[in-house]
């Protein structure tokens, strides 16, 4: 026992000393602007907005413009102290990621008038936010709409172009939870499909989780059994399951948020993209240039080129030019305002 104790005690200074040689923390160049990022309770690795925002900030950091301070909360009660803590640590711009920050941001921002806050996926209209808060939103329904146009055309008119498509006029969607961005995606997807294929049937499953791959897979298979030959996912990590389901049921799938083609190149038709990374990067640049304006919302859509469709990759020769034309038509109609896409199921009447 005594021997163990001695070894144990001896090793403490050894560890302390060796620590001196390891990664230097907190020795960053002082002139750099500190940009804080508070993730929501899911943390990094959600395959969605947290990762997207981080990638945008990372890009700015790699260019030597800023220094990132990241904090992942243990639970939702940490939101307020995390935001105020980042402000106290000297962060000049703070990204609060996820719609659950709605109240926390309103509570913290007035206490730190010199710090700017950007709320990702937050939309403030009543009341308007304080002058140092900017809500950043995407028109997910617009990229969902384009994906819907592709799916609506491919599942019926051009079903003979791929052996993975069947004769039935059915497509499907796997949703994580009924949260606003997911809602916008799904409503846009449905409307897009119906705009080119009015009697199409759009099925959906809400899995109730953003982490359960196996459930995402089963949901996709259940959709496929009802005849859906193109299934899209709006379900974070749960959505990973649709790629394995596509291999099993030999159907086509679509990714969301980023180009997810690499998960299953032979089965992924396209992805409905949301340019979180780009928007974050641009917002950061705006801030550095002194153009950051709070007190309202910034909405990124097709017009800003911040949402859209991923390339078709392997399906370039499968998707006919008529479909590409239809997508382009929809894109210009949306930008010009000729098409107005509802944002909730109630508005859309589905």
């Amino acid at each position: 026992m005594r021997k163990l104790t001695v070894i144990f005690l001896l090793s403490i200074p050894a560890i302390a000393l060796s620590g001196a040689g390891s990664k230097a923390v907190g020795t960053a160049v002082q002139e750099r602007i500190i940009v804080g990022m508070a993730t929501d309770a899911n943390g990094l690795g959600d395959g969605s907005f947290n990762d997207g925002v981080y990638a945008g900030l990372k890009k700015a950091e790699d260019e030597g413009l800023i220094e990132i301070r990241l904090i992942e909360p243990a639970s939702m009660t940490d939101y307020v102290p995390n935001l105020s803590g980042l402000a106290e640590d000297g962060a000049e711009l703070i990204f609060a990621v996820g719609f659950l920050f709605y109240d926390a941001l309103l509570e913290v921002a007035p206490n730190y008038p010199d710090t700017m806050f950007a709320g990702i996926d937050l939309f403030y209209d009543s009341p308007m936010p304080p002058s140092n808060v900017l809500g950043i939103n995407w028109k997910e329904h617009e990229s969902g709409y384009l994906a819907g146009v592709v799916a609506g055309l491919m599942t019926r008119e051009y079903a003979n172009r791929s052996d993975k498509l069947n004769d039935e006029n059915v497509i499907g969607a796997v949703l994580g939870m009924d949260i606003p961005p997911v809602e916008r995606y799904f409503v846009g997807f449905t409307e897009g499909a119906k705009s080119v294929n009015s009697d199409i049937e759009v099925l959906s499953v809400v899995t109730g989780t953003f982490t359960d791959q196996a459930k995402g897979k089963e949901a996709t298979i259940a959709l496929a059994e009802q005849g859906a030959d193109i299934v899209i996912q709006f379900a974070g990590l749960t959505g990973m399951g649709i790629f394995t389901a596509a291999q099993e049921k030999n159907i086509l799938v679509m990714g969301a948020d980023v180009d997810q083609n690499h998960f299953a190149p032979e089965y992924t038709l396209t992805s409905a993209m949301k340019g979180t990374t780009q928007a974050t990067y641009l917002t950061t640049l705006d801030f550095i240039d002194g153009n950051f304006k709070g007190g309202g919302n910034a909405v990124f859509g097709l017009a800003e080129d911040a949402v859209g469709l991923a390339p078709f990759h392997d399906f370039d020769f499968v998707v006919p030019s008529e479909v590409i034309d239809a997508v382009e038509q929809a894109r210009s109609d949306i930008i010009s305002g000729a098409v107005d896409i509802p944002q909730t199921r109630d508005d859309a009447g589905i």
Partner: peptide, 16 residues
């Protein structure tokens, strides 16, 4: 089974 047969990768909390 969850990570390499039913799925094709590990994701956090995948046992759900």
């Amino acid at each position: 089974y969850l990570s390499i047969e039913n799925g094709n990768s590990f994701s956090e909390g995948m046992t759900a």
